[in-house]
Amino acid sequence: MNPLVLQSDFGLDDGAVSAMYGVAVGVEPRLRIHDVTHNIPPYDIWEASYRLAQVVSYWPTGTVFVSVVDPGVGSDRLSVVARTATGHLVVTPDNGTLTHLHAIFGITELREIDETTNRREGSEHSYTFHGRDIYAFTGARLASGAIDYEQVGPVLPLDRLVSLHVDEPRLVDGTVRGTIDALDVRYGSLWTSIPRELFLELGVSHGDRMQLRVTRNDRVVHSNQMRFVPSFAAVELGESLLYVNSLDRMAVAINRGSYARAFDLGTGNGWKVALGLVV
């Protein structure tokens, strides 16, 4: 059997997540069930997409992920299982949740879930909790080996995959440009889409002073200078810093403070960042 890893925007204040666990255990009591998070902001598909990409490569090949952030439940959006180039399976609505996985790692195959066979018995007239009735059930069957990938349902062309708009990071006129993809939620750091290798094409070294600009809707909403350093310990308490985060991308923080809260900054493709060397 393979691990089953769940993600949702359900929170832990009611029994929704427990119901998903129960369905999975009902398929196979010996399943190892784990969580990415259940604190995705309600309906935030972008956040769900990013958090999957944040963790997937650290799990063994064959791990099955179930991600349920589904504002379109009950609509004509498709239920799918994607196979990634890293050898993982992801059970999810086809609503953009696979965007970052496809962009960073690649999706090699996509299948529509055949809900006539891959659905919890007795749930045929329920249209609002597919996370429990279809996704947890199908994920558990895949993880336990009760079905194989080919039994999920028919193959879909990869160009059918629903993706959110993502701007590729780029080097332009002496600055690297990208987006604020996510926050280090607990600490308020800004995690950008700019890979370390692209940033280093600026010819920078640790200790160099950098100019940060953040724009939204083509308007500069924040500007600051800080040093590029290897870790938080290289700056004073309360000082801003630029560093390489755990995903090998550039991040901005305040030592012992929340950068996002201090400057009221958000995430998503509408939040643009530019980094340049101060000379």
Rank of each mutant, 00 (worst) to 15 (best):
H102P: 04
I104V: 13
F105I: 07
F105E: 14
G106Q: 06
G106S: 05
E109G: 12
L110N: 09
E112R: 14
I113T: 11
I113P: 08
D114E: 12
D114N: 15
G122K: 00
E124F: 10
E124M: 07
S126L: 13
H130E: 14
I134V: 15
I134G: 06
F137L: 08
G139T: 02
G139I: 02
A140Q: 02
R141G: 00
L142G: 00
S144W: 03
A146C: 11
I147N: 01
E150K: 12
V152T: 02
G153H: 13
P154E: 13
P154S: 09
L156G: 07
P157H: 10
P157D: 13
D159H: 13
V162K: 12
V162I: 09
S163H: 14
E168W: 00
V176L: 00
V176S: 00
V176F: 00
G178Y: 01
G178S: 04
T179S: 14
D181F: 09
S189L: 12
L190A: 14
T192V: 03
T192H: 02
S193W: 00
I194P: 00
R196I: 10
R196C: 11
E197G: 07
F199G: 01
L200W: 12
E201H: 05
L202E: 03
V204F: 06
V204H: 05
H206N: 06
G207R: 08
D208C: 01
R213Y: 04
V214P: 04
R216W: 15
N217M: 11
D218W: 03
R219M: 12
V220R: 05
V220S: 02
V220G: 01
V221I: 15
H222A: 05
